[in-house]
Design a protein around this nucleic acid. Structure first.
Lengths: 165, 165
DNA sequence: GTAGAACTTGGAGTCGACTCCAAGTCAAGA
DNA sequence: TCTTGACTTGGAGTCGACTCCAAGTTCTAC
């Protein structure tokens, strides 16, 4: 806890993979708190700042808009879990979003796999509206059940299964 | 195959969850082929068009930029799997992207779960640079190994584990 | 035959997330 | 002393992906 290492914005950018400009931008829009400065005004970052930015980068990868990241960071400063019920709610919601995003992605992976080993069967990559197989059936992703196949999906990249060229 | 049902753009929008404007926009930028028209010039869509748009919507959910969707659709028109090795390559790449995206998302879910049941342990939500635990260790996602915990990640939303308020 | 809905087009506007730029400060080195 | 490099700031520009608009046509119902 004594004489903690500090980093310049350039080093921070290198360590986090987020560009200097973007880090300043995040500070500008108050996504990040105003960084500490040296006497000359230069920003300095500590290990925990690095990790905060890495968390941002991680959330970014999940496609979360910057505005939605705020609660994650805002609370980090002076936190207490039970004291923020609406925040817990938000977390729960976001968790659900991510889980269904994973399901969506998994379906695309399945789709690609099918395409790669040449069209066999295919379940629909349906969206929220209507019944969602991935949510209603438990082992939906694992079990290769022959389901009614979408014509288009059977067609992509595959030698026409029923229609001659 | 006779007297196939056709849909207006409005119906198509309702069926796919993609707005009329966006469908026209996709046509304008040639992401979708020019739709058939009735004598009066109105667009008409068939079942396979609906499914094409649904596939777009699905890819969109995975965060794929519109430009990257083109190969998926371009080939759909007159396809043959083995004949497009570079396309297969593209598919493979995209598959890898999605898989690592899923890993990233899964880490965020883990993180949230930990937060929800109050900080216990935490592995780093690291990005591409550096060693990637999710890729090097096989059962990384499943097995709850106690790893060096990121200070920040331990801090979010949790009653400070070591630091008093 | 007239109102209203449903469409068409081209083009402009918006929004999020950067990315770039100019002008300035400051410290270290040839 | 002068240059170079690393930074600062505010603001402008860019890019992707829509989203909206105005003007015009066509179909349907009263």
């Amino acid at each position: 806890m004594e004489a903690q290492q500090v980093f310049t914005i350039k080093q921070t950018a290198e360590l986090t993979g987020i560009s200097e400009d973007t880090i300043r931008y995040y500070e500008k829009i108050s996504l990040l708190p105003r960084a500490e400065r040296k006497e000359n005004g230069h920003r300095i970052y500590r290990q925990e700042d690095i990790e905060t930015i890495q968390l941002l980068s991680c959330l970014k990868k999940t496609g979360m808009p910057l505005d939605e990241m705020r609660p994650f960071l805002g609370v980090a400063i002076d936190a207490d879990p039970g004291e923020f019920p609406e925040l817990v709610e938000r977390l729960r919601n976001h968790r659900e979003n991510i889980v269904s995003q994973i399901a969506s992605l998994q379906q695309v992976v399945d789709f690609i796999d099918m395409k790669l080993e040449e069209g066999r069967y295919r379940r629909n990559c349906s969206d929220g509206s209507g019944n969602d197989a991935a949510l209603t059936s438990p082992s939906a992703v694992e079990e290769p059940v022959a389901k009614p196949v979408s014509a288009v999906q059977m067609t992509y990249f595959s030698v026409p299964a029923k229609a001659g060229k």
